[in-house]
C-alpha cells in the first residue's frame, strides 16, 4: 500500500474515517448488537422523561395551553400561509448573501498597499454589521430609509427586511469564507500562480472552490440562523409565521400557535442539515489526498 502523503493534504489527516458514518453515530461499535443497545437506551430515556412530564401537576393546563389540538388545527392554515413569506425572504436573501459575502471576503484579502482602503472598508463593514443587533438594523433601515421620502429609495418593508438580513448575514458569512480561504494551504496558490494564472484566476478556480467546500458546516449554521431571523422582518409590518402565531395567540390566549410555527421552521432546517452532512462526507473523501481505506 502506498501512502503518498505530502504537504498538500490537510493537517487533520488523522480524522480519516476509520469506520462508516453510521457506526460513528452509534459510538464506534458495529453490528446488530450495537443497534439493539442504542434502541433500548433511547426507549428507556424517553419513556422516563415522558412519564416525568405527564405526571406533573400542571400537565393538563400545560397541554391545554401549549399542545391544544383544536387550536393547532385552526391556526395551521393561516400560519402555513404566512410561512411562505419566511421561505421567500430566506431564499432571496440567501442567494444574495452567498455572492455578496464572497465579494467582501475577497475585498478583505486583496494584497498590496494600493488596496488598503478597500480592505479597511471590508473590515469596518464586517465589524459594524456583526456588532449591531439584527433587529436594530431591520428597524433602522425599515423605518428610517423610507422616512427620507426620496423618490428613488424604496419604501417596501419587505425590500428593507431582505436588505437588512443580507447586510448582517453577509458580514458573518464573509468571515466564514475568509477563514476558509485562509485555510487553503498557500502551496495551492503557489501551484496555481506557477502555471501562469493571475491572482483572480487562482482565487476563482483553485482557492475559492476549496475554501467553500471546507466551510460548509459553519455556512450552514449561519443559514439556519438566517432562516429563523426571517421572523424579525415582522417588526416593520409584514405578517410572517411568527407574527401570525402572535396574532392567533392574542385572539385565543393560547400558545399552541407557536408550536405550529416552531414545527414549520424545523421542517425547513432539518432536511437542510442532513443534506449538508451528505455534502461534507462526499467532499471529505476528496480532500484527504492520499489516504485510502
Amino acid at each position: 500500500m502506498d501512502h503518498g502523503q505530502g504537504e498538500g493534504s490537510p493537517d487533520h489527516a488523522g480524522l480519516a474515517a476509520t469506520g462508516s458514518r453510521s457506526s460513528r453515530i452509534l459510538g464506534g461499535a458495529e453490528g446488530a448488537r450495537a443497534v439493539a443497545i442504542a434502541l433500548a437506551s433511547t426507549v428507556v430515556l424517553f419513556t422516563v422523561l415522558a412519564v416525568l412530564v405527564v405526571t406533573s401537576p400542571g400537565w393538563p393546563e400545560f397541554r391545554r395551553t401549549f399542545l391544544n389540538r383544536e387550536v393547532f388545527r385552526e391556526a395551521l392554515p393561516e400560519i402555513a400561509d404566512a410561512f411562505l413569506l419566511n421561505v421567500r425572504i430566506f431564499l432571496i436573501a440567501e442567494g444574495i448573501i452567498l455572492v455578496f459575502a464572497l465579494f467582501i471576503a475577497v475585498l478583505r484579502s486583496l494584497p498590496g498597499p494600493v488596496f488598503f482602503p478597500l480592505r479597511v472598508l471590508a473590515i469596518v463593514y464586517t465589524d459594524v454589521f456583526r456588532g449591531i443587533p439584527t433587529i436594530l438594523v431591520i428597524y433602522t433601515l425599515g423605518f428610517g430609509a423610507p422616512a427620507l421620502q426620496l423618490s428613488w429609495v424604496p419604501i417596501s418593508p419587505l425590500f428593507w427586511g431582505v436588505v437588512s438580513l443580507v447586510l448582517v448575514y453577509s458580514a458573518y458569512v464573509a468571515e466564514v469564507y475568509r477563514a476558509g480561504i485562509e485555510s487553503v494551504h498557500p502551496s495551492q496558490e503557489a501551484a496555481a500562480r506557477s502555471l501562469g494564472l493571475n491572482r483572480g484566476q487562482a482565487l476563482r478556480f483553485v482557492i475559492i472552490p476549496q475554501a467553500v467546500r471546507r466551510v460548509v458546516p459553519p455556512l450552514l449554521n449561519d443559514f439556519i440562523g438566517l432562516q429563523k431571523d426571517t421572523a424579525l422582518v415582522a417588526i416593520i409590518g409584514p405578517v410572517e409565521a411568527f407574527r401570525q402565531a402572535q396574532i392567533e395567540e392574542a385572539a385565543t390566549f393560547n400558545f399552541t400557535p407557536y408550536l405550529v410555527t416552531g414545527l414549520l421552521f424545523l421542517l425547513l432546517t432539518i432536511p437542510l442539515a442532513r443534506l449538508t452532512d451528505w455534502l461534507i462526507a462526499r467532499d471529505r473523501r476528496r480532500q484527504l489526498a492520499g489516504a485510502r481505506a
Binding site: E7, Q188, A190, Q201
Partner: peptide
C-alpha cells in the same frame, strides 16, 4: 515547476488538473 509535495488541485479530476493552465492562462 514541480514541487516536493506535488500540490495537485484536490477538487479537480486528473484531466482538469492538466487542462486548467492551458485553458485559463
Amino acid at each position: 515547476i514541480v514541487f516536493q509535495a506535488f500540490n495537485l488541485f484536490p477538487h479537480m479530476t486528473v484531466v482538469r488538473n492538466v487542462t486548467l493552465g492551458p485553458r485559463k492562462a
